[in-house]
Amino acid sequence: MTTPIDARGYAHPSALVSTDWVAAHLNDPGVRIVESNEDPLLYTAGHILGAVQVDWARDLNDPLRRDYLQRGEFEALMSRSGITPETLVVFYGDKNNWWAAYALWVFLLFGHSNVKIMDGGRAKWELEARPLTREVPHYPATAYTAHDRDDRTIRAFRDQVLTHVEAGLPLVDVRSPGEFTGEKLHMPEYPQEGALRGGHIPGAQSVPWSRAVNTEDGTFKPADELRAIYEGEKGLAAEQDIIAYCRIGERSSHTWFVLTYLLGYPHVRNYDGSWTEWGNLVGVPIEK
């Protein structure tokens, strides 16, 4: 049974809200509910009343080069979503909130820090038989001014990862065990997202993202259970400079959220290039 969020011992419990909380704030003008999914049909088929969609491909990524949107595009996204710099944005989505965490991370790159995740995501909302609607909300456009994208604080690039490896600093590989060992070049369900080389970045600890959630309802595990995994089992420590990675950066943004908000680690970065970049780079070190 899932315990109340405040009783789970998180460093920043306010980063999560429950489905009950969301249900009680559907008409709160200071709150914008944002759904972010992998399945392109789910939002259109039904979403939480008043929720807007942020599509990872259309809204968050540059359509040409492998990178995220720029400041002007982020401001336009905020404006058409009816979000002001003061709006509390609550993310939820499919796949145990992978894409919700990814979207939250991108919002933070532009300085929108008033963000939370709905614990358990879309699956828990549906498990509880809460209502969904097909009505797409329209909010008055806002005037939103963001700062330039900050790629220095919570994002890591390949050259930084290489320096990190050479310094012997810790990394967390959140992919499946078969991908970590190099037995598989891609995660079991994603054969297209492969790489020319298998294995992991030297020094990385293997902690599949799914170990942070309860399988029955997708909620996050309590802090003591998370510490037992990341600290007791893997030897990580709160003050370390840590880089998380996966295949394209979405699963590792989930782990980045766990380490940053639930355990309170202040220096965690997400390497969004991840294995689709590292496993195809010429000359970088790889371990199996």
Partner: peptide, 13 residues
């Protein structure tokens, strides 16, 4: 059918 923006994972399934 589903559009070019389909994630690679979803497309593979």
């Amino acid at each position: 059918l589903f559009g070019r923006e389909l994630t690679m994972g979803k497309g593979a399934g």
